[in-house]
Simulated assay, not measured.
Amino acid sequence: MTFFHVVVVGAIIAAIAAVAWFITPKGKNQTLLRTSALMTLTCCYLMWAITYLAQLNPLITPRRSDLRAEY
């Protein structure tokens, strides 16, 4: 189920990127605007996905401090 969330959000971001590609106004800075929009969406998605997936399988397992040492 967790991988499903990453794929669904990725599909939503891809749809938003496609819309941003087609609604950028024509003109001198069209390439700059498209690149900025697509790079912003990509970087935000990657940051979210890496943070989300890192929390699912942490490198250091949390330990309870209220237990006795032999447990």
Rank of each mutant, 00 (worst) to 15 (best):
M1R: 01
M1Y: 02
M1V: 04
M1W: 06
T2W: 15
T2Q: 14
T2P: 14
T2A: 15
F3S: 15
F3I: 15
F4Q: 09
F4V: 11
V6S: 14
V6F: 07
V6E: 04
V6N: 08
V7A: 08
V8A: 12
V8K: 15
V8E: 03
V9L: 01
A11R: 02
A11M: 13
I12H: 08
I12A: 14
I13A: 14
I13M: 14
I13D: 12
A14D: 14
A14M: 11
A15L: 14
A15Q: 12
I16Q: 11
I16F: 08
I16A: 14
A17M: 08
A18S: 11
A18I: 13
V19P: 08
A20K: 09
A20T: 04
A20I: 04
A20V: 06
W21G: 06
W21I: 09
W21T: 07
F22Y: 10
I23S: 07
T24P: 03
P25L: 05
G27H: 12
G27L: 12
G27V: 09
K28V: 05
N29F: 07
Q30I: 02
T31E: 05
L32F: 13
L32E: 14
L33K: 05
L33I: 05
R34A: 01
T35Y: 03
S36A: 14
S36W: 15
S36G: 10
S36H: 10
S36C: 13
A37H: 11
A37K: 13
L38R: 13
L38I: 07
T40Y: 12
T40H: 07
L41A: 08
L41M: 10
L41C: 09
T42E: 03
T42N: 12
C43R: 03
C43V: 04
C43E: 08
C44Y: 02
C44S: 09
Y45M: 11
L46N: 01
L46P: 07
L46D: 03
M47Y: 02
W48R: 04
W48P: 12
A49L: 01
A49P: 07
A49H: 04
I50H: 01
T51P: 13
T51R: 07
T51S: 06
Y52N: 00
A54I: 02
A54W: 00
Q55I: 04
Q55N: 01
Q55V: 00
L56C: 05
P58W: 00
P58C: 00
P58N: 00
I60Q: 00
I60Y: 01
I60D: 00
I60L: 04
I60N: 01
T61H: 10
P62D: 02
P62Q: 01
R63E: 05
R63F: 00
R63D: 00
R64A: 07
R64K: 01
S65E: 06
S65A: 10
L67H: 02
L67D: 02
L67N: 06
R68K: 15
A69W: 07
A69H: 07
A69M: 07
A69P: 12
A69T: 05
A69E: 13
A69I: 10
E70C: 02
Y71S: 04
